[in-house]
Amino acid sequence: MIRSQRWKGAAFTVPFQLGFVFLYLLPIGYAVYQSLFLEQRSGLGLGGATEKFVGLDNYQQGLTDSAFLGSVLRVFLFACVQIPLMLGISLVLALFLDAVTARAAGRFRILLLVPYMIPGVVAAIVWVNLYSPLVGPLTPLGEFFGFQWDFFAPSMVWPSIGNLLTWHGIGYNMVIIYAALQGVPRELFEAARLDGASEVRIALSIKIPHVRGALVLTGLLSIIQMLQIFNEPALFRNVTPQTVTDSFTPIMIIYNQAFSANNYHYAATLSVLLALILGVASFLFYRLTSREVD
């Protein structure tokens, strides 16, 4: 390629590069910068605020902040239960789709994708009302079977949110896994059948290993989303402010530090910490899951 042509090619990416600098790099730099300062009010707080360089003090505070660490742990433990459960269901459904006729698969795929078409906030609104003892159909259903369900009780909030996320996510994850299943050469199944393998055996020994990549990917995306969970707890908080506190998840803490406590410096510190945690978690997950392949 001629030299001038290369530079013309680079020119196509200039709008993006500029935007990336202003909307990604600059904000991140600004957040890191802010995390190194502290706002100090002089005297009675009437004399205005001055910014003071404090080095890594904010990070020290963040790493010993039990509310923040507690929220990370809470979300992490929740992720350990909800993500395998959701991906397990998605995988089973994808295997089912792969084993029925093409026409049936097409129909069920559309039906199962309906929740994915619904915005997350709206999905949360719908489920909060389904759980509601006043208008929801689930409470009378429980009573019919002799259960006293309280979906907003402290012990039930995570399962309730987990069900909502699972409902919202299985269709999307199923489609990704199903697409990967479609890529498995069909001759493999025929060969296995000739060798007398059962359908379950084929699913376990051929199909699932072939979609491992898709499972790792969906798992990674789910972890990234989960550590940043905000919408669903925020809506639950509208119903049960006592159970879902304002420090329920990391992003809720960051949001409240920024807009309720007006402590941008600390909010910036915690968002940098969260980014680091996210990076480490993704890296570990990727290493753990891809090592097994070799």
Binding site: L23, Y24, L26, P27, I28, Y30, A31, Q34, L227, Q228, I251, I254, Y255, A258, Y264, A267, A268, S271, V272, L274, A275, L278
Partner: peptide
């Protein structure tokens, strides 16, 4: 990159 890291600044 978490959204909070971009959105707040």
């Amino acid at each position: 990159i978490p959204i909070a890291l971009l959105t707040l600044p």
